[in-house]
Design a protein around this nucleic acid. Structure first.
Lengths: 131, 131
DNA sequence: CGGCATCCATCATGATACTG
DNA sequence: CAGTATCATGATGGATGCCG
Protein backbone atom coordinates (compact mmCIF):
# COMPACT_ATOMS: atom_id res chain seq x y z
CA UNK A 1 0.00 0.00 0.00
CA UNK A 2 2.77 2.33 0.85
CA UNK A 3 4.37 1.30 -2.41
CA UNK A 4 1.22 2.16 -4.29
CA UNK A 5 0.92 5.50 -2.56
CA UNK A 6 4.54 6.22 -3.34
CA UNK A 7 4.19 5.30 -6.98
CA UNK A 8 1.13 7.51 -7.26
CA UNK A 9 3.07 10.35 -5.80
CA UNK A 10 5.84 9.84 -8.26
CA UNK A 11 3.34 9.86 -11.10
CA UNK A 12 1.81 13.03 -9.75
CA UNK A 13 5.19 14.63 -9.44
CA UNK A 14 6.03 13.65 -13.00
CA UNK A 15 2.69 15.05 -14.14
CA UNK A 16 3.45 18.25 -12.35
CA UNK A 17 6.93 18.46 -13.84
CA UNK A 18 5.48 17.88 -17.27
CA UNK A 19 3.06 20.74 -16.76
CA UNK A 20 5.77 22.97 -15.43
CA UNK A 21 7.86 22.13 -18.45
CA UNK A 22 4.95 22.91 -20.77
CA UNK A 23 4.33 26.19 -19.05
CA UNK A 24 7.99 27.06 -19.26
CA UNK A 25 8.33 26.26 -22.95
CA UNK A 26 5.13 28.09 -23.71
CA UNK A 27 6.27 31.16 -21.79
CA UNK A 28 9.62 30.86 -23.51
CA UNK A 29 7.85 31.13 -26.85
CA UNK A 30 5.72 34.05 -25.74
CA UNK A 31 8.47 36.14 -24.20
CA UNK A 32 10.42 37.01 -27.40
CA UNK A 33 7.23 38.10 -29.12
CA UNK A 34 6.40 40.34 -26.20
CA UNK A 35 9.92 41.74 -26.38
CA UNK A 36 9.32 42.62 -30.00
CA UNK A 37 5.88 44.04 -29.27
CA UNK A 38 7.36 46.25 -26.59
CA UNK A 39 9.46 48.07 -29.16
CA UNK A 40 6.87 48.04 -31.94
CA UNK A 41 3.75 48.84 -29.93
CA UNK A 42 1.11 51.24 -31.14
CA UNK A 43 -0.57 51.87 -34.45
CA UNK A 44 2.20 53.79 -36.14
CA UNK A 45 5.65 52.28 -35.62
CA UNK A 46 5.38 49.59 -38.27
CA UNK A 47 3.81 51.92 -40.85
CA UNK A 48 6.65 54.38 -40.23
CA UNK A 49 9.26 51.66 -40.64
CA UNK A 50 7.61 50.46 -43.84
CA UNK A 51 7.53 53.97 -45.22
CA UNK A 52 11.25 54.33 -44.58
CA UNK A 53 11.96 50.94 -46.10
CA UNK A 54 11.15 52.56 -49.44
CA UNK A 55 13.90 55.11 -49.02
CA UNK A 56 15.00 57.96 -46.83
CA UNK A 57 12.31 60.50 -46.18
CA UNK A 58 11.76 63.92 -44.78
CA UNK A 59 9.23 64.61 -42.07
CA UNK A 60 6.49 66.07 -44.23
CA UNK A 61 6.95 63.38 -46.87
CA UNK A 62 6.21 60.73 -44.28
CA UNK A 63 3.29 62.71 -42.92
CA UNK A 64 1.77 62.68 -46.40
CA UNK A 65 2.61 59.08 -47.09
CA UNK A 66 1.26 57.43 -43.96
CA UNK A 67 -2.52 57.53 -44.02
CA UNK A 68 -4.18 59.38 -41.13
CA UNK A 69 -1.08 59.94 -39.03
CA UNK A 70 -0.81 63.30 -37.29
CA UNK A 71 2.32 65.38 -36.95
CA UNK A 72 2.24 64.80 -33.24
CA UNK A 73 2.24 61.02 -33.48
CA UNK A 74 4.79 60.99 -36.26
CA UNK A 75 7.11 63.14 -34.21
CA UNK A 76 6.62 61.12 -31.05
CA UNK A 77 7.01 57.72 -32.68
CA UNK A 78 10.06 58.76 -34.67
CA UNK A 79 11.71 59.82 -31.42
CA UNK A 80 11.01 56.45 -29.83
CA UNK A 81 12.20 54.54 -32.89
CA UNK A 82 15.35 56.63 -32.88
CA UNK A 83 15.95 55.86 -29.21
CA UNK A 84 15.64 52.17 -30.00
CA UNK A 85 18.06 52.63 -32.89
CA UNK A 86 15.65 51.43 -35.53
CA UNK A 87 15.64 54.83 -37.21
CA UNK A 88 18.37 57.40 -37.81
CA UNK A 89 17.78 61.14 -37.92
CA UNK A 90 20.18 63.24 -39.95
CA UNK A 91 20.17 67.03 -39.93
CA UNK A 92 21.74 68.68 -42.98
CA UNK A 93 23.14 72.07 -42.13
CA UNK A 94 21.59 73.90 -45.05
CA UNK A 95 19.37 76.97 -45.30
CA UNK A 96 16.66 76.14 -44.67
CA UNK A 97 17.61 73.15 -42.60
CA UNK A 98 16.78 69.69 -43.99
CA UNK A 99 16.05 66.72 -41.73
CA UNK A 100 16.20 63.27 -43.20
CA UNK A 101 15.04 60.04 -41.61
CA UNK A 102 16.38 56.65 -42.58
CA UNK A 103 16.18 53.05 -41.44
CA UNK A 104 19.20 51.64 -39.66
CA UNK A 105 20.38 48.15 -40.56
CA UNK A 106 18.74 47.09 -37.36
CA UNK A 107 15.46 48.60 -38.50
CA UNK A 108 15.77 46.81 -41.82
CA UNK A 109 16.14 43.53 -39.99
CA UNK A 110 12.40 43.71 -39.34
CA UNK A 111 11.73 43.15 -43.00
CA UNK A 112 10.91 39.41 -42.87
CA UNK A 113 8.51 39.88 -39.99
CA UNK A 114 6.78 42.79 -41.69
CA UNK A 115 6.57 40.83 -44.91
CA UNK A 116 4.79 37.94 -43.22
CA UNK A 117 2.45 40.29 -41.43
CA UNK A 118 1.64 41.95 -44.75
CA UNK A 119 0.90 38.60 -46.40
CA UNK A 120 -1.49 37.77 -43.61
CA UNK A 121 -3.09 41.20 -43.78
CA UNK A 122 -3.79 40.78 -47.49
CA UNK A 123 -5.47 37.42 -46.88
CA UNK A 124 -7.36 38.90 -44.00
CA UNK A 125 -8.72 41.83 -45.98
CA UNK A 126 -9.81 39.49 -48.75
CA UNK A 127 -11.55 37.32 -46.20
CA UNK A 128 -13.49 40.10 -44.53
CA UNK A 129 -14.51 41.85 -47.74
CA UNK A 130 -15.68 38.55 -49.20
CA UNK A 131 -18.23 38.17 -46.43
CA UNK B 1 11.05 78.73 -75.86
CA UNK B 2 7.51 77.59 -75.73
CA UNK B 3 8.82 74.14 -76.57
CA UNK B 4 11.20 74.26 -73.69
CA UNK B 5 8.52 75.45 -71.34
CA UNK B 6 6.29 72.65 -72.55
CA UNK B 7 8.94 70.03 -72.12
CA UNK B 8 9.64 71.29 -68.62
CA UNK B 9 6.02 71.02 -67.78
CA UNK B 10 5.92 67.48 -69.06
CA UNK B 11 8.93 66.65 -66.97
CA UNK B 12 7.28 68.21 -63.96
CA UNK B 13 4.09 66.32 -64.60
CA UNK B 14 6.04 63.08 -64.92
CA UNK B 15 7.88 63.91 -61.71
CA UNK B 16 4.58 64.46 -60.01
CA UNK B 17 3.15 61.24 -61.38
CA UNK B 18 6.18 59.40 -60.20
CA UNK B 19 5.69 60.80 -56.71
CA UNK B 20 2.03 59.96 -56.76
CA UNK B 21 2.92 56.45 -57.83
CA UNK B 22 5.48 56.15 -55.06
CA UNK B 23 3.01 57.37 -52.49
CA UNK B 24 0.43 54.95 -53.79
CA UNK B 25 2.71 51.94 -53.76
CA UNK B 26 4.01 52.86 -50.33
CA UNK B 27 0.50 53.24 -48.97
CA UNK B 28 -0.40 49.97 -50.65
CA UNK B 29 2.36 48.27 -48.69
CA UNK B 30 1.35 49.90 -45.42
CA UNK B 31 -2.37 49.20 -45.63
CA UNK B 32 -2.28 45.38 -45.26
CA UNK B 33 -0.03 45.68 -42.23
CA UNK B 34 -2.44 48.12 -40.67
CA UNK B 35 -5.27 45.71 -41.43
CA UNK B 36 -3.38 43.01 -39.54
CA UNK B 37 -2.52 45.36 -36.69
CA UNK B 38 -6.17 46.30 -36.36
CA UNK B 39 -7.06 42.72 -35.45
CA UNK B 40 -3.96 42.01 -33.38
CA UNK B 41 -3.70 45.28 -31.48
CA UNK B 42 -2.86 45.40 -27.79
CA UNK B 43 -0.40 43.60 -25.60
CA UNK B 44 -2.21 40.32 -25.25
CA UNK B 45 -3.69 39.02 -28.48
CA UNK B 46 -0.51 37.52 -29.87
CA UNK B 47 0.52 35.96 -26.54
CA UNK B 48 -2.93 34.40 -26.29
CA UNK B 49 -2.69 33.02 -29.82
CA UNK B 50 0.76 31.63 -29.13
CA UNK B 51 -0.45 29.97 -25.96
CA UNK B 52 -3.25 28.28 -27.89
CA UNK B 53 -0.88 27.23 -30.66
CA UNK B 54 0.53 24.74 -28.13
CA UNK B 55 -2.81 23.07 -27.75
CA UNK B 56 -6.33 23.70 -26.57
CA UNK B 57 -6.53 25.31 -23.20
CA UNK B 58 -8.97 26.16 -20.48
CA UNK B 59 -9.37 29.66 -19.13
CA UNK B 60 -7.34 29.25 -15.96
CA UNK B 61 -4.60 27.36 -17.77
CA UNK B 62 -4.07 30.31 -20.05
CA UNK B 63 -4.25 32.75 -17.16
CA UNK B 64 -1.37 30.84 -15.54
CA UNK B 65 0.58 30.46 -18.74
CA UNK B 66 0.58 34.02 -20.02
CA UNK B 67 2.83 36.14 -17.83
CA UNK B 68 1.14 39.06 -16.07
CA UNK B 69 -2.21 38.87 -17.80
CA UNK B 70 -5.30 39.50 -15.64
CA UNK B 71 -8.58 37.60 -15.82
CA UNK B 72 -10.31 40.69 -17.07
CA UNK B 73 -7.98 41.20 -20.01
CA UNK B 74 -7.88 37.51 -20.85
CA UNK B 75 -11.65 37.41 -20.91
CA UNK B 76 -11.95 40.58 -22.97
CA UNK B 77 -9.29 39.64 -25.51
CA UNK B 78 -10.62 36.11 -25.94
CA UNK B 79 -14.01 37.57 -26.78
CA UNK B 80 -12.53 39.83 -29.44
CA UNK B 81 -10.44 37.04 -30.92
CA UNK B 82 -13.52 34.86 -31.02
CA UNK B 83 -15.48 37.59 -32.81
CA UNK B 84 -12.71 37.77 -35.40
CA UNK B 85 -12.83 33.99 -35.71
CA UNK B 86 -9.24 33.47 -34.71
CA UNK B 87 -10.25 31.55 -31.60
CA UNK B 88 -13.02 29.06 -30.96
CA UNK B 89 -14.78 28.64 -27.64
CA UNK B 90 -16.30 25.28 -26.80
CA UNK B 91 -18.49 24.64 -23.79
CA UNK B 92 -18.68 21.02 -22.65
CA UNK B 93 -21.94 20.29 -20.94
CA UNK B 94 -20.45 18.53 -17.95
CA UNK B 95 -20.76 19.09 -14.21
CA UNK B 96 -19.04 21.33 -13.51
CA UNK B 97 -19.00 22.93 -16.89
CA UNK B 98 -15.75 22.86 -18.87
CA UNK B 99 -14.85 25.61 -21.32
CA UNK B 100 -12.13 24.97 -23.83
CA UNK B 101 -10.46 27.46 -26.13
CA UNK B 102 -8.76 26.51 -29.36
CA UNK B 103 -7.22 28.15 -32.39
CA UNK B 104 -9.21 28.08 -35.59
CA UNK B 105 -7.41 27.28 -38.83
CA UNK B 106 -7.57 30.95 -39.50
CA UNK B 107 -5.85 31.68 -36.21
CA UNK B 108 -3.18 29.13 -37.05
CA UNK B 109 -2.51 30.96 -40.29
CA UNK B 110 -0.73 33.61 -38.24
CA UNK B 111 2.02 31.14 -37.44
CA UNK B 112 4.60 32.33 -40.02
CA UNK B 113 4.18 35.95 -38.98
CA UNK B 114 4.49 35.10 -35.29
CA UNK B 115 7.51 32.96 -36.00
CA UNK B 116 9.32 35.82 -37.72
CA UNK B 117 8.38 38.21 -34.96
CA UNK B 118 9.75 35.74 -32.42
CA UNK B 119 13.04 35.40 -34.29
CA UNK B 120 13.41 39.15 -34.29
CA UNK B 121 12.50 39.35 -30.63
CA UNK B 122 15.21 36.85 -29.72
CA UNK B 123 17.82 38.85 -31.63
CA UNK B 124 16.52 42.02 -30.06
CA UNK B 125 16.75 40.73 -26.51
CA UNK B 126 20.26 39.52 -27.14
CA UNK B 127 21.16 42.93 -28.50
CA UNK B 128 19.81 44.92 -25.60
CA UNK B 129 21.20 42.64 -22.90
CA UNK B 130 24.60 42.69 -24.57
CA UNK B 131 24.81 46.44 -24.08
C1' DC C 1 -14.01 26.85 -12.46
C1' DG C 2 -14.88 30.64 -15.67
C1' DG C 3 -15.81 34.41 -15.71
C1' DC C 4 -18.45 39.57 -15.05
C1' DA C 5 -19.19 44.33 -12.57
C1' DT C 6 -17.34 48.25 -10.72
C1' DC C 7 -14.09 51.75 -9.69
C1' DC C 8 -10.06 54.05 -10.72
C1' DA C 9 -5.44 55.38 -12.67
C1' DT C 10 -2.69 55.86 -16.56
C1' DC C 11 -1.68 55.79 -21.34
C1' DA C 12 -2.42 56.30 -26.24
C1' DT C 13 -4.30 58.90 -29.70
C1' DG C 14 -6.58 62.79 -31.78
C1' DA C 15 -7.69 67.91 -32.83
C1' DT C 16 -6.14 72.26 -33.09
C1' DA C 17 -3.19 75.94 -32.83
C1' DC C 18 1.27 77.80 -32.82
C1' DT C 19 6.62 78.55 -33.39
C1' DG C 20 11.61 79.20 -35.04
C1' DC D 1 9.80 72.85 -43.17
C1' DA D 2 9.92 70.41 -38.93
C1' DG D 3 8.18 70.15 -35.52
C1' DT D 4 5.96 71.58 -30.22
C1' DA D 5 2.14 72.87 -26.84
C1' DT D 6 -2.22 72.30 -25.12
C1' DC D 7 -6.43 70.17 -24.38
C1' DA D 8 -9.82 66.43 -24.82
C1' DT D 9 -11.26 61.71 -25.21
C1' DG D 10 -11.16 57.07 -25.36
C1' DA D 11 -8.64 52.77 -24.63
C1' DT D 12 -5.94 50.05 -21.57
C1' DG D 13 -5.08 47.89 -17.50
C1' DG D 14 -4.99 46.97 -12.27
C1' DA D 15 -7.66 45.86 -7.87
C1' DT D 16 -11.29 43.98 -5.79
C1' DG D 17 -15.37 41.59 -5.08
C1' DC D 18 -19.23 38.80 -6.67
C1' DC D 19 -21.81 35.03 -9.10
C1' DG D 20 -23.62 30.49 -10.89
Amino acid sequence: MSTQTESMNVAEVKEEHKELRDHSTCMGMIQPVQDALYVLNGKWKLPIIISLSFGNKRFSEMAREIPKITDRMLSKELRELEMNQLVKRTVYDTVPVVVEYSLTDYGSSLDPAISELRKWGIQHRERITRK
